[in-house]
Amino acid sequence: MTASRIRREKLTIRRMIALYARRCPQALPDEDHYSALNAYADKRLDKCVFGENKPACKQCPVHCYQPAKREEMKQIMRWAGPRMLWRHPVLTVLHLLDDRRPVPELPEKYRPKK
């Protein structure tokens, strides 16, 4: 695969955060918060140990988000996920297909030493 997998993940997350920030009643009014969260997610995707072979984040054995940010992203994805089907159907279907991909083995340099 090319770099399009990571790029598509970034786009999907950006769209989910934007949808949540605009439409969700419990969303914070602070737009800077969501910009920072999106930048954090982009940085985490850039540093993913699996690279282009990354599994869906919920199936990944390596949790690279800080616990508080991970919980916030889970909340955003729970709310925005079903609504994404209407707003961005192609991204949603591709994300659901990615969710079914098998989890690759952890790269050698990240495996624990025996």
Rank of each mutant, 00 (worst) to 15 (best):
11 L>H: 03
99 D>Y: 14
68 A>H: 04
102 P>Q: 14
67 P>V: 04
91 L>T: 08
8 R>Q: 07
28 L>M: 10
36 A>W: 07
53 N>C: 08
112 P>K: 15
22 R>F: 04
113 K>R: 12
105 E>F: 07
63 H>V: 15
59 Q>D: 14
85 L>P: 06
57 C>K: 09
1 M>S: 12
67 P>G: 02
75 Q>H: 13
72 E>A: 13
26 Q>L: 05
48 C>E: 03
53 N>F: 00
42 D>R: 05
93 V>D: 14
4 S>M: 05
26 Q>K: 10
78 R>W: 08
98 D>C: 08
95 H>V: 06
5 R>D: 02
86 W>E: 15
16 M>R: 04
114 K>Q: 11
47 K>M: 07
37 L>I: 04
110 Y>G: 02
109 K>P: 01
6 I>Q: 01
45 L>S: 06
10 K>N: 13
75 Q>M: 15
50 F>K: 04
14 R>D: 12
74 K>D: 12
66 Q>Y: 03
53 N>M: 08
8 R>P: 01
40 Y>K: 10
70 R>S: 11
28 L>Q: 12
70 R>Q: 11
28 L>D: 11
27 A>H: 06
15 R>Q: 05
96 L>I: 13
10 K>D: 13
68 A>K: 04
15 R>Y: 00
1 M>D: 09
92 T>K: 15
21 A>L: 03
4 S>P: 00
67 P>W: 01
95 H>F: 14
96 L>V: 12
33 H>R: 11
52 E>M: 06
13 I>A: 11
111 R>T: 10
93 V>I: 15
43 K>N: 10
4 S>L: 11
30 D>S: 11
51 G>P: 01
44 R>S: 02
17 I>V: 05
12 T>S: 15
41 A>M: 02
100 R>Y: 09
39 A>N: 09
23 R>K: 07
26 Q>S: 12
38 N>I: 07
71 E>N: 13
47 K>P: 00
14 R>N: 13
100 R>M: 15
70 R>I: 08
25 P>T: 03
103 V>D: 00
94 L>N: 06
2 T>C: 01
62 V>F: 12
94 L>C: 11
10 K>G: 12
29 P>H: 05
41 A>T: 05
58 K>Q: 15
50 F>M: 07
25 P>L: 05
93 V>C: 15
29 P>K: 05
99 D>E: 14
100 R>W: 09
9 E>F: 02
55 P>A: 11
37 L>W: 07
1 M>A: 14
114 K>T: 14
77 M>W: 03
36 A>C: 09
5 R>T: 02
5 R>E: 03
22 R>P: 00
